[in-house]
Simulated assay, not measured.
Amino acid sequence: MRLLLVARVAGVLGGLAWVVRHVAGVEELRWPGLVLLGVALAGAGAGLVSSSAAWLRLLVALCFPVLVWSVVEVLHGSAEDSLVDAAAGAVIALTCLVAMVRGGRRPAGSHAGSRAG
């Protein structure tokens, strides 16, 4: 649970770093923001997989940030790089913030409370 919280806090801080980088023009925040967002995305990727398959969790934790980065790179062709990075950072920061506020609540779905029998 603590690793998930660390990943979410990293996502908020990294996203804010990229937003500040764009708004204030502080180019020095690019790499720290990228590292923090990478940690957040790796944690989110690992959270997508059952904890019983450690090797798969590791694989998804490594691949999920690469997938997100490839989408951001495609979007770089449509607008200014710093603006695209700021938008991606804001989306990741908001997603992590919402996840932190929601806490450990179970998802509300038709199968949320059911068990495989």
Rank of each mutant, 00 (worst) to 15 (best):
G33E: 01
L56V: 14
G47L: 02
E73K: 09
S82P: 02
G11D: 01
G25R: 09
A88W: 01
P65K: 06
L13V: 15
A53L: 13
S70N: 06
T95R: 05
A116M: 07
G104E: 14
V74Q: 09
A79N: 11
A7F: 00
D81M: 06
L4F: 08
G11T: 09
L58I: 09
G14I: 01
A79C: 03
S70V: 07
W55Q: 14
M100E: 10
R102Q: 08
G77T: 09
S51P: 06
L34W: 06
V26A: 14
V66F: 12
G45D: 05
G14K: 01
S70R: 08
C63K: 06
V6I: 15
G38P: 07
A93I: 02
E28M: 11
M1V: 08
E28P: 01
S110A: 14
A40V: 05
P107G: 06
L67A: 15
S82V: 09
A87N: 02
E27M: 10
G103Q: 05
L83E: 04
A24V: 11
G33K: 02
V66I: 13
V9P: 01
V66G: 02
L75A: 13
G113S: 10
V9I: 15
A88P: 05
V20N: 05
A116D: 10
G15T: 08
G47S: 07
R115G: 03
V35C: 03
G47Q: 00
G43P: 03
A93G: 08
V9L: 12
G33I: 03
V84A: 04
V49I: 11
T95G: 13
L97H: 04
L13S: 04
S82K: 12
A40G: 07
V101Q: 08
V35D: 04
L97T: 11
G89H: 05
E27V: 11
